[in-house]
Nucleic acid binder design. Structure first.
Lengths: 351, 351
DNA sequence: AGCGTTCCCGTTACCGCTAACGGAAACCGC
DNA sequence: GCGGTTTCCGTTAGCGGTAACGGGAACGCT
């Protein structure tokens, strides 16, 4: 492989008998080229397969049309959807994506990552790593003092100095719990995600609030901490039943743990939903084929990713015009998207 | 946001009272700088947070330390694993990743994609799009005539003019079928993936060969085509039982369809594995919590991604030295990784 | 002392492209 | 037929780095 050398604008210019500047004009579709010349140059370009060196272009123009994306856990449901949304929207808007994955979400070396992306001259950065532990303190330390816009996805929307796009995780907890209550449940347990995850805390908070609004208890006996994996869901149900034998419903904080709950219920011979209602979160593709089909809460993750790109594009444009002295930088963008309940067979129907 | 402007090497040089060349030497850890000077420059760099413009560096050096990755279907199991493997290995070797997702695997505009990546001066390209329909004809048309190495992942290893890393999908079919036969099955059905997928055809081929080696029939009555989705697995079992009432085992070409099969078996009241053995492919995280826990074939997808990066790095190095007139280009790299059976409860044990 | 090394560091040119400018030719109006 | 536009295209400079070269100072040796 690797035979044809890369062409330069100069070679094209010589072949077409014009100056490099004229070739540049043709590439960029500038109007001030005579139709005949334009076509001749165009012809040479398509004959030779020339494509301009975007490094060089980036150097002169000070922009790369590239977004830096930092993400974690592509093999999980949420992150892969968000990234898909980001990529799709970015491609549509003419941005390339420079992808960086984090392997230890708890202690990302944010400084090094960011400056490596800055070095690559990205026009903006989307930080799509879940808010775990204090892995976002950097965003309040460095503040807004970055050479390009930085946008957070997921996690505490509106809490940071930086812009942030997220999904309303309290609403997830409220929706799920409300649905279980409407189905007649009175002893609603929860299997949470790891408590150092913001999403997990928010979902529990929604669950708790909804119960308290109904005057129902939300005690520690009804809570078990999971780790997002199916096994922890299975063990979670065993523990939950020990702590609270009257349990008649479980809100599992994601579908995988809900699957574990269903598994455990089978083993125990507890009928779902007649004796135990189960609700998950994520609406993964398999959820409708669990046994029984899983009621769950759907998150607009792809939309969140796409929105993040649109927002950061806006921020990039604003920053550019602000640099030309046009106007003040606006408040960082912030949005909280709403989840949606998907009712299937693992939960009792409303009254 | 976006306040601090980017620094240049010139500003650092002035602040440190040296020439830009000296700063360059410090950045690149060249030996010929006096310790005192080195430290002084280093100090200015860390004080100001300077990081060099990789565009400019790429321009002079003719390389970007970036790999172009083209992938499809991140929300699916296989592709996300492969990409994770690629990213991890790439990060470890100092490569950045420029990600391009394809949304229609059947008709990728390969030419445009490749030349857009060439424009970005990537050092090499990993094409990790499944081999669907004739979406790879370009690789035999353009042949090896690319400015940088191109490597295919998945699909027909060794068949193309380009290098290729893949997993032995025939072995997957053979492993699964062999296991079912050892469990005493005599009427083994298959639910395939879409037949325009190379993986799907290979798995069926493995299934067929193994049956024929045993002198057992492998007729069309035992075959139903699925679409990788759980629903098609469920409907697949209904159809299969109509066509072949004596069916005592099913090889589902992925775990999701296997889940659909389990679902259907429940509905029909067929005991798994006593009346019907089921094997899937992928070993997704949830598989061990299906009901019953799913026997499946594990693919070393992450390894394939990592290997692809190592191979393309080798190709890049070889191309560089070949360009300096050192040696002939070697044969394109090619590897076929072996899958592994994971026995759980959805299949009868061996005799 | 005289000469060659070695150690540091600066100067110059260039990577491939585009912004800014300038200027010749063609066109316009009166 | 003349000044003023407009149209088209070339020249120059510079983006932020690094390769290649060169040269002064300090050091070593005979």
């Amino acid at each position: 492989m690797t035979s044809r050398r890369r062409l330069t604008i100069k070679e094209v210019a010589e072949a077409a008998g014009v100056s490099t500047q004229t070739v540049s004009r043709v590439i960029n579709n500038r109007p001030d080229v005579a139709p005949g010349t334009f076509e001749r140059v165009q012809q040479v370009i398509s004959d030779t397969g020339y494509s301009p060196n975007l490094f060089a272009r980036g150097l002169t123009q000070g922009r790369s049309h590239t977004l830096g994306v930092v993400a974690y856990g592509l093999e999980y449901f949420g992150p892969s959807r968000v990234l898909t949304g980001i990529e799709q929207q970015a491609a549509g808007m003419g941005y390339a994506i420079s992808l960086n994955l984090i392997h230890e979400p708890e202690l990302p070396d944010a400084g090094r990552l960011l400056s490596s992306l800055f070095s690559r001259q990205v026009d903006g950065i989307i930080w799509a790593v879940p808010d775990v532990g204090d892995n976002r303190v950097w965003s309040n330390v460095t503040g807004t003092d970055h050479p390009v816009p930085v946008l957070l996805v997921g996690g505490m929307a509106g809490q940071s100095l930086l812009g942030s796009i997220g999904i309303d995780n309290q609403a997830i907890g409220r929706l799920a719990t409300e649905h279980l209550l409407l189905g007649g449940a009175r002893h609603v347990g929860i299997i949470t995600g790891p408590m150092n995850w913001w999403e997990a805390r928010q979902r529990r908070q929604g669950w708790r609030e909804r119960l308290q609004e109904q005057g129902l208890p939300a005690s520690e006996r009804q809570v078990v901490n999971g780790d997002w994996g199916a096994t922890s869901g299975e063990e979670g149900l065993y523990r939950l039943l020990e702590q609270e034998p009257d349990l008649d419903a479980v809100f599992a904080s994601n579908d995988q743990m809900a699957l574990g709950v269903l598994h455990a219920a089978h083993r125990l011979g507890r009928a779902v939903p007649d004796e135990l209602s189960v609700v998950g979160v994520d609406n993964m593709a398999e959820a409708s084929h669990f046994w029984p089909a899983l009621t769950t809460v759907d998150q607009p993750l792809r939309d969140a990713g796409a929105l993040a790109v649109r927002e950061i594009d806006g921020a990039i444009r604003r920053a550019r015009s602000a640099r030309r002295g046009q106007e003040q930088p606006a408040a960082p963008p912030s949005a909280l998207l709403q989840p949606q309940l998907v009712v299937r067979e693992s939960s009792r129907a409303g009254l």
